[in-house]
């Protein structure tokens, strides 16, 4: 298991962020979960700028869990920025959102999201979903080779 690789959670809602962390813990996903609070902070983190200027850009997360509806910079904008950058364009991005609207799903896939998961209201379902996501993206799926 590539436990050294972190999961980046982009989520503006504190309760949702805590729930997601709890669900991943309950699903026994051992990877560190780094949470950023909105789209701007996500871009700062990924591109090692602002308060994350000390980071290395090529130290990329294993996977990004991206919320769509966020203040300032939306999830779709973040996704576009990731796909537009040579260094991190292959980063697996999973849209994790409350919305199941057609236009949101379409916008996500139009911008090459790797996966789209609707957060269930039932916590037990959420744990199951987290476990499956972890198993798939952190164990089963082979990431692109490092350059």
């Amino acid at each position: 298991m590539r436990t050294e690789q972190i999961i980046l959670l982009v989520e503006d809602n504190d309760a949702d962020a805590e729930l997601t962390a709890m669900a991943f813990a309950d699903a026994h996903i051992g990877n560190a979960l780094v949470r950023v609070c909105d789209g701007q902070e996500a871009l700062d983190y990924l591109f090692a700028q602002g308060r994350y200027a000390h980071r290395q850009v090529d130290d990329i997360p294993a996977v990004v869990l991206l919320d769509l509806n966020m203040p300032r910079i939306s999830g779709i904008e973040v996704l576009k920025a990731i796909r537009a950058d040579e260094r991190i364009k292959h980063l697996p991005v999973i849209i994790l959102t409350s919305s199941n609207e057609d236009r949101d799903r379409l916008a996500a896939y139009d911008n090459y999201a790797n996966s789209y998961v609707q957060k269930p209201v039932d916590y037990d379902q959420f744990v199951i979903a987290s476990r499956q996501l972890g198993l798939y993206w952190l164990l089963l799926n082979e990431p692109p080779p490092r350059r």
């Binding site: 809602n13 309760a15 949702d16 729930l19 409350s98 609207e101 957060k119 037990d124």
Partner: peptide, 19 residues
């Protein structure tokens, strides 16, 4: 859209933290 998105978040919190 707001109903589908914003109303579900608090419910998730209620359910999750109760659990």
């Amino acid at each position: 859209y707001s109903v589908s998105h914003d109303l579900r978040a608090p419910l998730r919190a209620i359910d999750g933290f109760s659990k």
